[in-house]
Every structure is written in C-alpha cells, then in structure tokens.
C-alpha cells in the first residue's frame, strides 16, 4: 500500500462568512501514529467530521485509505472513530450499546466481550451506560472505535476524563495498535502524551494547517535552550552579558541563566565563562517540548 491513510487537499468548510477549516492540506502516512493538535475552535473536529463524511466540505478533496471522501461506504468499514466524546444510549448497557453498533456494521457480536475486557470494562459491561463514570464512558467509546478491527483509528480526545493509569493504558493501546499496522490519527490536548507516541503531527490554528510532518522535524524547528548555573549566583549577570554580546536572548530565573540557543553553542559558552573567571556548576542543553512548540506556533497563552 503506497497511498497515505489520510490525504486532504485544500479542504475547506465555511459556515456563512466564517471559515471553520480553510484550505487544509496534509497527509497521514499509513501505519503511523499522527497527532492532530490545535487550540479549541481551530477546526480539528470539523476536519475529522469531513474525513468521516459527517459534514460535507465546502471545497477541496480528500482520500481515506485510498478512497475519495465522497465515497465513505468504501473506507468506513475499515475505520474506527470516536468523535467529540463517547455518545451512547443511556438506557442500554455498555455491552448492548456495542451490540447495536456491531449489528449495524456487520461485525461479529462475539468481538464485543473481548473489546470490553481490552478496555477494562469486562465486569461492568452489563451495567447501563448512564451509570458509567466519565472515564468508563470514554473507555466504551474506544471499544466502539475498535469494533471493526480498524486499519485507521480516529480518536478525538480519547483521554478526556481518564485517570493517570487510564491515560497510560490508552497510550499503550495506541502503541500496540500502531505496532500491528493500524494507523492512528489522534487529537489531544495532552501534548506531552502525544510527544511520546506521535511520529507525525498535524497542527491547526484558526482553521489553517500551520504544520504537517514528522514530530522530530517540528521540534527541530524550534531553538533549544541552554541552562547555565554558575557556582556563585553573583556571576549570573556576567553570563547574561556574554550571551547577549553573542546575540542570544537570555532570561534569569531561579538562579539559572536560560539562554535561547542550540546545544552547539554550549562548548563556546563554557569556554567564554571560564575566560571571564566564572565556574559553571552545571550547563544543560534543553530541547523544546511539543507543548512549548505548540504555544510558540499557535500563539496560545499557557
């Protein structure tokens, strides 16, 4: 299979004069975990809904698993999705809710119990959905998305409402699915989680794609930070001066000088400090996190 799992080109959705998604163009390679990030209202869910054919685009084209988004019947049987939180029938049990979807999709009912156990709901499958906690509802949503044994799994905020161990379980599940060849397209606000699992990132801001590519490429675009801690704090000012003379921005906080620079300047800084009679107690190169990069690129306040 040499086609991408998802490919959209100039995908646009307008509501009157407002553009929810504007000329979005990106690809998600087959068999990867791709993070889909952006501030609230940036158009993530609208894009996902267009991919799933729930919303018709105003313009633009797209393919999912090699089929046009105009023919969802050709690709949706191989797609699992949880969009904007889990939505189920409150008066039915978790198991019966999955049975409804399995019947509708033509999947064997025998898969249901296994999926309930996989997401940790094996013993509560018979309880009514309305009695579930938010975390349990979320787990049921993930189980429903896994029903078709999908080639492409689309998850919109799958860790909402989950406790730390639940978040870890979802992370491990996504990694395991990716290892088995499933493409996972996951939108999340937990950027530290995404950084751990996502090989690719698509970043949206105000309905426009501002980055689409490898996570490593995204992070390398941002300058790193050198954190220098002198033996004596009175030398902090001198270090800042040295950094500024060499064209680097610097801030001083908590007894450390934080210099915006790549790790390649650390040797020179060490030498310059030594020549100025300063002994550095520590000098650490810190790479930018996905979260810092996100805030930098989207201009979203922390």
């Amino acid at each position: 299979m040499d086609f991408p799992a998802i490919s959209v080109s100039d995908l646009t959705k307008n509501y009157g004069n407002r553009s929810a998604v504007s000329h979005a163009t990106f690809e998600v390679p087959m068999g990867t975990v791709c993070g889909f990030v952006g501030p609230n209202g940036s158009g993530k869910t609208t894009t996902i809904r267009m991919i799933l054919s729930l919303i018709s685009p105003s313009s633009g084209t797209g393919t999912v698993l090699g089929h046009s988004i105009n023919h969802p019947e050709k690709y949706l049987p191989a797609v699992g999705a949880m969009i904007e939180g889990p939505a189920f029938y409150p008066a039915l049990s978790g198991r019966e809710n999955l049975n409804v979807l399995a019947t509708l999709g033509g999947f064997p009912i025998s898969r249901v119990q296994g999926l309930l156990e996989q997401v940790g709901l094996g013993e509560r499958g018979g309880s009514k959905f309305k009695t579930y906690s938010l975390g349990m509802k979320q787990r049921l949503g993930i189980a429903a998305a896994l029903l078709p044994n999908p080639k492409l799994l689309i998850l919109d905020e799958p860790t909402n409402g989950l406790d730390p161990s639940g978040i870890q379980e979802v992370r491990e599940l996504i990694i395991a699915l990716a290892k088995s060849g499933t493409t996972v397209f996951v939108s999340s606000h937990l950027l530290s989680e995404l950084e751990m699992i996502a090989e690719y990132i698509v970043m949206l801001r105000l309905g426009k794609v501002i980055f689409a590519g490898k996570t490593a490429a995204l992070l390398s675009r941002q300058a790193g930070i050198l954190v220098a801690r002198p033996e004596y704090s009175v030398d902090l000012g001198k270090i800042a001066e040295i950094a500024k003379i060499h064209g680097h921005e610097v801030t001083i906080e908590n007894g450390e000088a934080r210099i915006i620079s790549g790790s390649e300047w650390s040797a020179q800084l060490n030498r310059l400090a030594f020549e100025a009679g300063i002994t550095l107690a520590s000098l650490t190169a810190v790479s930018p996190t996905l979260e810092e990069t996100f805030f930098e690129m989207t201009g979203d306040s922390q």
Binding site: L52, L54, P72, E73, V79, G85, A87, Y89, P90, L104
Partner: peptide, 14 residues
C-alpha cells in the same frame, strides 16, 4: 440529542 447519529453514520454511511 444523544449525539449517537454520528456513530450510526460511521458504521452505515448510507
């Protein structure tokens, strides 16, 4: 009102 239509349409797009 429950938002379940999206589940149905993902499983049966017609």
């Amino acid at each position: 009102s429950l938002g379940t239509l999206r589940n149905l349409l993902v499983r049966q797009p017609s």
